[in-house]
């Protein structure tokens, strides 16, 4: 995943109607690029066969003791 430039970050914030300062844009670019680099580069063999979930079924939560 390619890093975003300051100009691209500025354009996206503008398109969302969010007011930002120059300093905001610089740091937001670092934050966004950190996520793109770290999470974008994280891999696992089961990733494609795993469906995304936010909440887990209760029956899976066996106490097991």
């Amino acid at each position: 995943m390619m890093p975003l430039s300051r100009e691209q970050v500025q354009a996206m914030l503008d398109s969302l109607g969010v007011a930002s300062t120059e300093e905001d844009v610089t740091e937001v670019a670092h934050r966004v690029n950190a996520l793109r680099q770290a999470l974008g580069g994280l891999e696992h063999p089961d990733l494609d066969s795993t469906e995304p979930m936010s909440v887990f079924p209760r029956e899976e939560a066996s106490h097991g003791n």
Binding site: M12, V18, D24, L35, D46, T50, M53
Partner: peptide
């Protein structure tokens, strides 16, 4: 403010990936 702004610019691809990794972590 900057943290929320960065969250607004997260690609859906990465959000989906984070939720898949959530399942793997679980």
């Amino acid at each position: 403010r900057r943290r929320v702004m960065a969250g607004m610019l997260m690609p859906t691809e990465l959000r989906d990936k984070a939720l898949r990794f959530r399942v793997i972590m679980r």
